[in-house]
Simulated scan of single mutants.
Amino acid sequence: MAYKSLLTVLTDPKVSDSAMAQLVALAAAQDAHAEALCLGVDRTQTGYYYAGANAMILQETLERATAEAEATLAYAKEKLGNSGVRWSAEDGVAQIADLGRHVAYRARFSDLVVLPLPYGEGHGAEAEPIVEAALFDGHAPVLVVPDGYEPKGQPKTVLVGWNESVEAMTAIRKALPFLVAAEQVRIVVIDPPQHGPERSDPGGLLSQLLARHGVACEIDVLSKTMTRVSDILNRHAEDTGADMIVMGAYGHSRFREAILGGATRNMLEKSRIPVFMAH
């Protein structure tokens, strides 16, 4: 059981080093093919131009996006060409409003999509739609890698955020290649419900399921001592020396997460280790 087709989507070499390094490390560890889709993003919205705008403006933005795509492709070829893994790379230009379609099409035929953290200094407006397109429209699991992270081909300790949701179970099933190979998997349950089938044994059935796959599991039941679940997970990851967090993505609507915040958005903003997500 392994990931054999890995994809990354790059739009800016300045914030892509960690994701590229992780992609290469995973490809080597999993004996997988690494693919880089290098996009130049036309960030204009032609439908909202003022009346006097002319074709020269459109041509200029297109030329800029094309130059960015070529530079990003050169960057990807340099990184992958010296990596020793099987790889391919190609470039293209997409308008920011149409970006998701291109990402989703490629993600649909990938086992795992490795992407940079979508938030932070220097990260463009296109980073978040790329993550969401891979998750929602491409139906692929996504590994989001924070800036400056030292790549690991196989995480030794993995935290699994468990809240009995469909999203969490989907992520766990898609993360099985990582979980089976890990030295330790810690199932984290925060404030388990007082009523329901798992009230007397939080995480018990999940632990049983994973154990039958040969996964070495422990269950950590934590109190909600901080306002945000993401803060608790991040702190516990630091305390346990975890190399990866597995969690379901966007239990609420994306609109609600964008406006009010949520565990997914907060995790992507603050995590210092890779986050494996699926929806």
Rank of each mutant, 00 (worst) to 15 (best):
A69W: 07
E198T: 02
Q30M: 11
R199N: 07
E90Y: 11
F109C: 05
H236E: 14
Q95A: 15
I57N: 01
V158R: 06
V144R: 06
T61M: 12
V145F: 05
S253A: 07
V221P: 01
D111W: 06
Y50R: 13
A71G: 00
I273W: 04
V145D: 00
D243V: 00
P116I: 02
S271P: 08
A34Y: 02
T8V: 10
S230Q: 09
F109D: 10
M56F: 11
A182F: 05
Q95Y: 13
A21Q: 12
S223Q: 13
A125N: 07
L222I: 02
Y50N: 11
P202Q: 01
D243I: 05
K224H: 09
T170K: 15
A36I: 13
Q59K: 13
T264H: 00
A28M: 13
H102Q: 15
D42Q: 12
I172V: 00
L99T: 03
T61K: 12
H279I: 03
M244C: 11
E128Y: 14
G261H: 04
G248T: 04
D42H: 06
Y50F: 13
G161L: 03
T66Y: 07
G241K: 09
K152T: 12
E238D: 12
T227P: 03
G92E: 13
V113I: 08
A168I: 10
Y105T: 12
H123Y: 11
S110P: 01
L135P: 03
G120D: 01
H279Q: 02
R101N: 10
E78C: 00
R106M: 11
S88T: 14
H195Y: 03
L99P: 02
L233S: 02
M226I: 08
A36E: 02
D98M: 09
L58R: 10
N163P: 04
L222S: 06
E167Q: 12
T157G: 03
M226Q: 14
K270G: 06
V113R: 10
E90A: 14
V188F: 08
T227S: 13
L260Y: 11
E60S: 15
D42F: 06
G196K: 02
R64C: 00
A278V: 10
V229A: 11
H236M: 01
Q45H: 14
E35T: 14
A140N: 02
S230V: 06
G122H: 04
L23E: 09
S200P: 00
A258E: 14
H279W: 08
D147F: 09
V144N: 10
A28E: 15
Q95S: 14
D201P: 00
K270Q: 14
S165Q: 00
A71I: 05
V93M: 05
E35W: 08
Q154F: 09
M277E: 04
G214L: 02
E63G: 13
Q45E: 09
I232L: 07
G138N: 12
V221L: 10
K4L: 12
T157N: 09
